[in-house]
């Protein structure tokens, strides 16, 4: 089982957290076209490689954070709290 480094709680079994997946910026709901909104809702890069994604420490401190994970090797880097987000976050 993957050890996921929660920025607060430290490395924890992945089963203690909730996986939220690929991070995407939320378009402005008042100006987004259908295509933009549905791209946000449905389309995913889904790379076999490094992926910036969101996790939620649901059985611990309940913090949402982002991390970069390699989707093949399982390596992890750069856990980030939402406050220090780079690019979009949802």
């Amino acid at each position: 089982m993957l050890l996921v480094p929660c920025p607060n709680c430290g490395p924890r079994n992945a089963a203690d957290l909730t996986y939220r997946g690929e991070s995407h910026a939320r378009p402005d709901p008042n100006t987004a076209t259908r295509e933009e909104w549905r791209t946000y809702l449905y389309l995913r890069d889904n790379p076999s490689g490094w992926l910036r994604e969101s996790w939620y420490c649901s059985s611990g401190c309940r913090t949402h954070f982002q991390i970069e994970r390699h989707t093949f090797t399982g390596e992890l880097r750069e856990p980030l709290l939402p406050g220090s987000k780079t690019g979009g976050e949802s």
């Binding site: 909730t18 939220r20 939320r26 939620y56 949402h64 939402p82 976050e89 949802s90």
Partner: peptide, 12 residues
Amino acid sequence: NWIEMWLQTERP
């Protein structure tokens, strides 16, 4: 979960 997600990520 839904509330915490919005509070932490979109409206911190």
